[in-house]
Write a protein that binds this DNA or RNA. Structure first.
Lengths: 129, 129
DNA sequence: ATGGACCTTCACCTGCGGGGGAAGGTCAAG
DNA sequence: CTTGACCTTCCCCCGCAGGTGAAGGTCCAT
């Protein structure tokens, strides 16, 4: 299967496939006599997996780790479980950070909404921020 | 004041100050006879303002807009209020996105925690993701 | 034989906010 | 006089996941 067909089936671009190959997430496919990449059909499973990983917010490096384990002939379940736990912790951290920021911005906005332009000192640029 | 002194007072690096100047957030200062940047003290207020803006999650471009208004001789209160409102909406959007992602990842993690490696099909890479 | 759709590699661009380090000028103290 | 701490400009680098475009080869149909 040529790269364009494979990309279409996976719902990705040809650029992305070459990028995954460069990053080691896709094995270098055999080439047709004309030099075109010639993918075996099962690569589609791999691309679907990469997409599922992306959808879970995993980085390509993390997805690559899982693929490496699988390629080494082992079931990556344990590693996947760990990565998902890490990802949950990371998401909780990010959400907490954003919520804290939101609280601060909301307080600033409260002040700014009742702003009196005449009370502003040009030297401070803006007293509501 | 030399760039290093100003940077130290503002709690920033000299690199950052030159970067802000390049981005138009800081006016090009006069130069001492030796070519060194020579800042007037009031630039410190401007740097403090930039930091307050960054702390509120504003981009340098947004902060630059506010500074432009102030430099045009107007009180930027209204513009600041708008930007803070935008920022609140953006934060709410990001938080909602992360929470949705967290829900999905948590569901995957639930499954993976009870994973049975023998039930995995190598073709799918990992059935828990 | 010619057009268009596909493929190849290569190198650079995006957003965001700077950081790293080279190569050289300047200044004060010892 | 030399050492070390500053300063200058310059260009490249990071993460992240690709996207963009150039220059050229290939394949299929008309």
């Amino acid at each position: 299967m040529k790269i364009g067909e494979m990309a279409a089936m996976a719902g990705m671009t040809t650029k992305a496939l070459r990028f995954y190959e460069e990053r080691g997430l896709l094995p270098a496919p055999t080439r047709s006599p004309n030099g075109y990449r010639d993918y075996p059909p099962e690569v589609l499973n791999r691309l679907d997996f990469i997409r599922r990983g992306r959808n879970a917010g995993l980085t390509l490096a993390q997805i690559g780790e899982i693929l490496d384990v699988r390629d080494a002939g082992q079931a990556p379940c344990h590693h996947v479980e760990e990565l998902l736990a890490d990802q949950l912790a990371e998401l909780d951290r990010q959400i907490a950070d954003l919520r804290e920021l939101r609280t601060n911005v909301a307080a600033l906005h409260e002040g700014a909404a009742a702003a009196d332009p005449n009370a502003c000192d040009a030297g401070d640029i803006c007293r509501y921020l």
